[in-house]
Design a protein around this nucleic acid. Structure first.
Lengths: 214, 214, 214, 214
DNA sequence: CATGAATGAGTTTTCATTCAT
DNA sequence: CATGAATGAAAACTCATTCAT
């Protein structure tokens, strides 16, 4: 299952193999239960080499968090086009988010569970990424409000809370979609858009928000 | 900070002291990083006594989860009266939820983060509680729909997803409210009610849901 | 399984109950693996009482050894009558020996295995009993030789070795008889008598087997 | 007393050093009372290395038993030549047996006392070796009977009991020879041959001693 | 570069043993 | 007498981390 034991790879490649292995093990076992032995074995290298390249278990974990946080943000970013209406942008972002977390469950476990469970240094790393996403969503909401020419003065803090709630709901649904039989990214995104965009009140009044075609 | 070292307490009392200490340490350090030594010291007893009463680290952790899960559910339950409209009931429940998690951050960490990060036995324990809460919320949504005499046929699975999202958003906001300077339970509950009840669309249209007075 | 919890027994009786329990547990688990907790529970008394009466685990073990050693020696002694020929006396002794060890396997385990496996103080206790038995057998052999009016000068040390070998063979057969399906004391004694008596007969007839040179 | 602390030895060598130390400590203290700390110290290595190479206390003990059982069987085997009469073969075997056990008292303690006192897995290991030796002796007795052209039909079970008794006597004498001042292997072997051979001789001549009625 | 050999420091857990009531 | 409450000390085992080759 580990990388094939090929000799003499450039350092950058070896490092990525190590990070691949580390993300899988950290995601599966948790930070503390993961052993450097197992990671080195899965990566197909000797333990001292892991230390040579990545210094310590903490540094290795941090490197995993950074790489996967960047990958997730990039995935969401590149799923969103700027020349479409705000609700479409939100929809695209959610779709990209659920698709990525569904495709990389170990990475998502590292970011969503493990990193937040083991002390400031790691939690801070994830918090930065989360802040970036929340800011992005906050921006979307503000733009949407402007586009609607209405409610020009949704107070800043209010919007922050809303974005926080939206992101939290998304994170929660990501786990739910992964666990539920036949849960697709599309379905999760639809549920969340309905929830967020229309609100329960509207839903119950029979006026749900409807997802775009593609 | 630990309990005053009083000798010869009845077993029931000592057990609660131990659970208090354990919840705090588990909440702060995480399950694996928490050491029985530290827990015993904070509880003001020797390690063997902890083992005598609570058997093992796993059993101790499980006992913490059970106690805190029950405490949280009870807090929410007793915050909600049945003779009020559904939106008011949801509001009261959220208020009780944010108040309790705000007052017991370590307990909330144990339930929300630690228990889900360390294998089936523990996760299942929390999942049971969560399922109970989700069912409660699902019920509220259904009742609200009926009271509104509208949308008589919100499909089951749809409602499940909505409740999941709502609970997820609440969980996320609980952490946010705790971390944000001046974040009050009331504010968190208001934000979430707005989000959930009216939806972003309505909000931006200047028609927010408004919280009751008390 | 433990003694019925009756209050207020005379000390001597309670002590015997404790020793009964201790012999069973020591015999089953071995000295080190036996726990004072288990012994106290089986005896139907509280642990401090065990300590009050028997001081320590070591003392308790020693008391077990002494009691069971005496019981075994007494059993063998009272199985032998002095007004019969030496071969009959040996036969009777063996029969009593195999019968007693077969009826008290835990006690035999304590004497034969556990006591010899845990350091001088205990081994010495058993060695004393063993010496007594070896002396008894040595005596029997000497008497038999005299009765046969032959081999008047079997050297002392030689006889000691023979008795040692005989006792060793008996001990070994005791375990074998207990383990073998349908092994009876009578059968074990017969086997050993055949083995030993015929050999000794030749010896005493002055026809020993002689070892080769190198 | 422990191995000189030489650094960086090949694994095979270190493993033997560890087994040497373990046999000594297990032999002296018994399985349960032996501590991995003491074994590691005597072997001149750190505890983790012992675990790295030998996995657990149980595995270490098993490894000791296997090595020493093989060593003892090999010693007896290579002390016996097949081109000599049966009595000579028995004599040679006994001599080799007493010599080996005398030279390796700790190993003999492990095999004879410790291994049989601590549960099936270990006892079984020794029982296998013992069975091999008993079979060997049984074979010798049968051959001797054939060579003597007599008693062609000593019943199987009878011979088994005799071999058991012989081996038991030998085991017992081994301890005796070690403990007795000036006890030599040669002397122990002679005593046992006298005891056994003359007895067997009579048996095979069809003149067994016969037990009384009751 | 790469690795087999090695360890210091810490973990959970158990047990014989003792007070205070 | 009898016991529930309590502990000091040590055991097996693991792991991140580092040399020497």
């Amino acid at each position: 299952m580990g990388a094939v034991k090929t000799k003499r790879m450039p350092r950058a490649v070896r490092e990525q193999q190590m990070l691949d292995a580390a993300v899988e093990i950290f995601g599966r076992r948790g930070y503390m239960a993961a052993s450097m032995d197992e990671i080195a074995e899965l990566a197909g290298v000797s333990k001292p080499l892991v230390y040579l390249y990545l210094n310590s278990k903490e540094d290795l974990f941090t490197a995993c968090i950074r790489r996967e946080a960047k990958a997730l943000v990039d995935a969401v970013r590149s799923g969103v086009r700027t020349d479409v209406p705000a609700d479409r942008r939100l929809w695209d972002g959610l779709l990209a988010f659920f698709a990525h977390t569904g495709r990389h469950p170990h990475a998502w476990s590292v970011l969503h569970l493990q990193a937040r469970t083991h002390g400031e240094p790691f939690a801070a790393e994830v918090a930065a990424m989360r802040a970036e996403i929340v800011a992005f969503v906050t921006h979307l909401i503000a733009v949407a409000a402007r586009e609607a020419h209405r409610a020009p003065d949704l107070p800043e803090q209010e919007v922050g809370g809303l974005a926080e709630a939206l992101v939290g709901a998304a994170e929660s649904l990501a786990a739910w979609a992964n666990a539920t039989e036949g849960g697709t990214p599309r379905q999760a995104a639809a549920t969340l858009m309905n929830f967020a965009w229309a609100g329960l009140g509207n839903l119950m009044a029979g006026r749900p928000w409807s997802p775009p075609e593609a």
